[in-house]
Amino acid sequence: MSALLELKDITIRFGGLVAVDGISLEVKEGNVVALIGPNGAGKSTVFNVVTGIYTPTSGKVLFRGEDITKLKPYAITDRGIARTFQNIRLFKNLSVLENVKIGCHCRGRAGIFGALCRYSGVRGEEKAFVDKSLEAMGVVDLTGKKEELAKNLSYGEQRRLEIARALASEPVLLLLDEPAAGMNPQEKQTLMQMVQRISGMGITVFLVEHDMKFVMSLSDRVNVLDYGRKIASGTPSEVQRDTTVIAAYLGKEVV
């Protein structure tokens, strides 16, 4: 199997700070791949590079063999990469359904003319958006909240809504930035099942997470960052035995 996503020697600097330092890694199609490391290690920055929010100082991002390093975020979403944010970025004053419908945006065509005339093609597209949104909300168990405003949801629900919104763009690759942060153990358990369900739908998952139980039981492969460098990668059990990893990070948290 070839790699769906490939980072080649990515470096990114912010002024004097090297946030990501020569990282190369691969995400294979159909896998659940984790990116772990202490706070400030550069994990979110890697996600921002993959989704085009930051342009790396040097290095390349390949998606399905295509160089997407310099593409704008919207063009990258269009090619099939969707994400959630560590610090939730929902459209707070809109309803849950509207949030997810915006996720469908790049799979639609209707423009200004369609908005004004609302001919049958446009009505059909709207209907399809609603159906697809409800389906995505179903995956994360939010169907019952569709009229609720996003800002009135609980923290865990907001995180799940972000996932639904990302799913609505029909991604091939889904990036989840600390999806379980702030959730209680029970919510984490359900979330784990949801991620498995998403993976079962054939979507490749690339996730950042601090909860080691979550990471180790879900992932096919784990990459470890520390101070912007990749210090290890392998299967969960390989990484757990890796002495540099234990020294840098795991030793404190995992038995």
């Binding site: 929010i53 704008k72 969707a82 970025r89 945006h105 209707a110 369609g114 908005a115 597209e125 709207e126």
Partner: peptide, 24 residues
């Protein structure tokens, strides 16, 4: 109440999130 209008509202609410939803 259209795809176009929702994109505009998305930009108002959070431009970066809108951009990652495929909106230019």
């Amino acid at each position: 109440n259209s795809r176009f209008g929702r994109a505009l509202v998305a930009i108002r609410e959070d431009e970066i999130a809108a951009e990652t939803m495929g909106i230019n």
